[in-house]
Design a protein around this nucleic acid. Sequence first.
DNA 1: TTCATTTCTTCACTTAAGTGAACGAGTTTA
DNA 2: TAAACTCGTTCACTTAAGTGAAGAAATGAA
Lengths: 207, 207
Amino acid sequence: MVKTSLSADSRNRETMQHLLFDFISTYVSLSEEEKHAILSLDIFRSIKKGTILLEEGQRSQEGYFVLKGCIRTYYVIDGEEKTTAFYTEMEGLTPHCVIHKAPSDYYISCVEDSILTVANPGMEEEIFQKFPKFETLCRMLSEELLAKQQINFDEFKTSSPEQRYLNILQKRPDLIRRVPQYQLASYLGIKPQSLSRLRARIIAKNK
Amino acid sequence: MVKTSLSADSRNRETMQHLLFDFISTYVSLSEEEKHAILSLDIFRSIKKGTILLEEGQRSQEGYFVLKGCIRTYYVIDGEEKTTAFYTEMEGLTPHCVIHKAPSDYYISCVEDSILTVANPGMEEEIFQKFPKFETLCRMLSEELLAKQQINFDEFKTSSPEQRYLNILQKRPDLIRRVPQYQLASYLGIKPQSLSRLRARIIAKNK
DNA sequence: TTCATTTCTTCACTTAAGTGAACGAGTTTA
DNA sequence: TAAACTCGTTCACTTAAGTGAAGAAATGAA
């Protein structure tokens, strides 16, 4: 499917807006005026699979939030891709380079055809001024993500690659289907060969 | 030294206040009124080495910021301590259980005699109301920590235990002196025996 | 469909971490 | 001061991850 009819596009956009507002409403309640302010920023973007959103060395100002699809961050170390994170529905990131105004150490690319919101600090500041509620929202989100991230890191440190794989199998089973194995391997901190072996080992155990 | 004279205590308190305000001033500038508002919250605490600030299963409401000293988070898994983070001067954490209002999965204890600020969400909300600038401060801090945390996690995933040790040796050399080896080992994701071996290996290489 | 490329798996071998035990240095306690 | 304990190191052995190569399977392009 290369083209979509206009009406399907607009239905799609409405769906995405709903997804976003539903998500936000679990943190703060928005008035119609506030919803309108968000929409007027025109932050919805359709991105094709394989698109590179951020390259190493680049000084981007964009933060991303995934409404549909999947994006990943990865480093290229000694010519090898090292995937460090996947972001799927209702997850977002503000790249390190945006916060620290330094060239990026990593890449961000689109694992699937995706729909994202794209924002920059300028837009944020503007809307924070008009509606302080959005700053509360961003603070709550950051704090929650920070705590969640810490737990993730803790789990990673305190478990073996095999346990990590079983953990993902439980908590984000979709990832295993959506994502190439070699990307998943570095996400688990191991080589693709080790992931293959590890899976074979698990299957052998369950027989 | 069991007791300190009153005047030394008050000098000490002033030093700590300065440390805090200097730190804050790198993010937002505070008026005297705002500084006073912080001081009136009475958030400075002296904590003895070994004190457990948070226990597994507890539902704490306290966030900590280290002005002097060192605290750590650790899990007890199969009767073994797994240290996952150290917080030293000008670093802070809001425990997961505070954000998610669930019993804590981990412990927080004091590695050295320390001086901390201790805050809870109620105090935050109150001061955010009066001085929105503090919410901006907290948002900026959270966002920065989140990005920094992500980089830490990335480095951990993309490197071997030996590289991680060399990395700490560079970035936080004080930790190696301040902290027991068995705590450092689990922080590196390995057993104390492996840390010993790894250090011996590094020394052998440099000969 | 066919060919080319990418991705995944398997294998043999190497390297390093896990495990359990033992020892010594340093610290605490009785 | 002596005994008990904690902590770090070392050792022998086990287990699993890293490496390089080869082949099978899946994917994409002509």
